[in-house]
Amino acid sequence: MDGLSLQWYQEFFNDSALRDSLFASLEIATVTMIVGTILGTMLAIGLVRSRAKWSPGANILMLVPLVVPEIVAGISALLIFSQVGLTLSIWTVVLAHITFSISYVTVVVRARLASMGTETEEAAMDLGATRWGSVRLVLLPGLWPAIVAAGLLTFALSFDDFVLSFFTTGEDVQPLPVRIWSAIRFGPSPTINAIGTLMMVVSISAIGLALLIPRLFGRRESGVKVLTAAEGG
């Protein structure tokens, strides 16, 4: 093996099983990103704006997935799925990923939401927008950079997650990190290194975009806040 070569990348793309795993991972990450971001944003709005009694409790509950070790979360997910009789598949992986990604999204979106205050929504209602109109026309556009950043962050987290995927994956095509792990057990191959590089590129691009997009929207503060909030979580 002398000099530079793209041979191992080619090998990866020629291996249909590995390719299927890549697509499975991309699919899981995409669905997780969309569903997790929607649910997480709704939760953030609910937590910040609701005056309900259970709001503080929900707040703590929301933070639990961020502090619980992933292996505990993985085993818990596996136990729950088998107890309710769900067959492990790519969709159980998605469910597990969504569960933990909601917390990340909520933390990121909530930081922006808290800095926006309620007066802009009130102003929208004062100017003739209904409650839903004020959310659609003022709140969501204001939150948009944070929502996009949170979505990309979830994508990256889901795409290279191993522990949760390992416990919740089934007979279906395995997500890429799990597939790599199995491959390594039969001895290391340079293809694995090539995949590792590819995965890193995808994850870094997603996080890079998460950083960049709020800036492109012309809001200096939110990008920084979003990421410090994510790190803090």
Partner: peptide
Amino acid sequence: NVNMVFQSYALFEH
């Protein structure tokens, strides 16, 4: 049919 001017201006930044 009333409108309000808020202390924080509450302009729509987007």
